[in-house]
């Protein structure tokens, strides 16, 4: 089971600023370990952000994204108390979904 994300969603002016910290090794598949063996690729592939259950961001990421990545989004039309849900799946089929409320 993957470690939880840390999500912050704050209203700034007329947009909601969403910041997500994800805990993930994001292995590229290009690196080798101490024994010279290739470390298998392991990275987040799909990413969705939903506001009150409605998808507002849907995207794909690849191996070029850093370990423990940070994502920032700006969403219009969110109100304090709205529920923000962020989900990802990685190339090994692992999933994680966390939520927070807009402050």
């Amino acid at each position: 089971m993957a470690d939880p994300m840390k999500i912050r969603a704050q209203i700034k002016g007329d947009v909601c600023d969403i910041r997500v910290l994800m805990s993930h090794p994001m292995e590229t598949g290009q690196r080798k370990d101490a024994d010279g063996k290739t470390i298998p690729a392991h990275f987040i592939q799909t990413l969705t952000v939903a506001l009150n259950g409605k998808t507002v961001v849907s995207g794909q990421t690849a191996a070029a994204v850093s370990r423990n990545p940070v994502f920032g989004f700006k969403v219009r039309g969110a109100k304090p108390g709205d529920k923000v849900t962020v989900s990802w799946t990685d190339n090994r089929g692992a999933k994680r979904s966390d939520e927070t409320t807009v402050a």
Binding site: P4, R19, L21, N68, V70
Partner: peptide
């Protein structure tokens, strides 16, 4: 600093 992955370690 506004989005420091250290916060993940803090959580753990």
């Amino acid at each position: 600093e506004a989005s420091n992955p250290a916060e993940l370690n803090e959580m753990k």
